[in-house]
């Protein structure tokens, strides 16, 4: 390991006030090593997406600290955000923009110059087999194609930390395996990847480290080997932990 890519210290995120207050993430601490493929698991509403939102700037932490490659995501948010790429669970795009525009605008937001951006957009369009769909508006694309556009957008600025929140939801088996290959390739090239997925075989297949979040708290954290001790699959171990 060459250091820490993500450090979460005593993160709490709550919504509302007084009797209405709901604690979505409750004093969690977590460390993700550089170059690791990290699986973040948990039931619906456990706090996975909220944690991701706090890392990326979509949500403001109530308390605690998050460091991306040593950079505080609140104090030095501009520097921290340029290191992170996000593929969110829900599509957060202008549905009237084309696939090409969505990736290109995002490259622009990250400050990539025109020539380099055009080259990068072409690369991503080709990598995700979007050539014949590049000029189609987002709302006209199928679920799987939409997911690929969102992945392209997350990767446009070649981030050091890639966060994928349910990246294969709605993607067919063939494309899922193609994506797995690409993610492995990215990870081999040194990218740190955080993956949440309800497909636990996907986590078992790809991740080197796993944490489980339940009711806003980290209830398990370790290497995949530790999770699978005793010949159990990730799914069996996950059910054991979350049903207790």
């Amino acid at each position: 390991m060459k250091g820490t890519m993500l450090e979460i210290k005593n993160l709490t995120k709550s919504y509302g006030y007084g009797d209405e207050q709901k604690i979505a993430v409750d004093d969690i601490s977590l460390s993700v090593a550089k170059g690791s493929f990290f699986g973040l698991l948990g039931p619906n509403g456990a706090g996975k997406s909220t944690t991701i939102h706090c890392i990326t700037g979509i949500a403001q932490p109530t308390s605690g600290q998050i460091l991306v490659d040593g950079v505080d995501v609140v104090k030095n948010y501009k520097q921290a955000r340029s290191k992170v790429g996000l593929s969110p669970q829900e599509f957060n795009v202008n549905i009237f923009n084309t696939a090409e525009q969505i990736i290109d605008y995002m490259g622009g937001y990250y400050g990539i110059k025109k020539e380099a951006r055009e080259k990068r957009v072409d690369e991503l369009i080709a990598r995700f087999h979007l050539e014949e769909h590049r000029h189609k508006v987002f709302q006209k694309l199928s679920g799987g194609l939409k997911r690929r556009v969102i992945l392209g957008r997350a990767l446009v600025h070649t981030p050091d930390l890639l966060i994928l929140d349910e990246p294969t939801a709605g993607v067919d088996v063939e494309q899922r395996h193609d994506l797995w290959g690409y993610l492995r390739e990215l990870n081999k090239r040194g990218k740190t990847i955080i993956l949440t997925s309800h497909y636990l075989e996907e986590i078992q297949e790809l991740c080197s480290d796993i944490a489980i979040i339940d009711n806003g708290k980290i209830v398990a954290n370790g290497t995949k080997q530790e999770f699978m001790k005793g010949g159990k699959s990730v799914e069996e171990r996950y059910l054991e932990i979350t049903r207790n």
């Binding site: 700037g57 501009k78 996000l86 957060n92 202008n94 549905i95 995002m106």
Partner: peptide
Amino acid sequence: YFMRFSRAIEELLVAPFS
């Protein structure tokens, strides 16, 4: 308003803008 409605505002929130 449309960016809020479609959540496309998140594209700006995650990008390095002050």
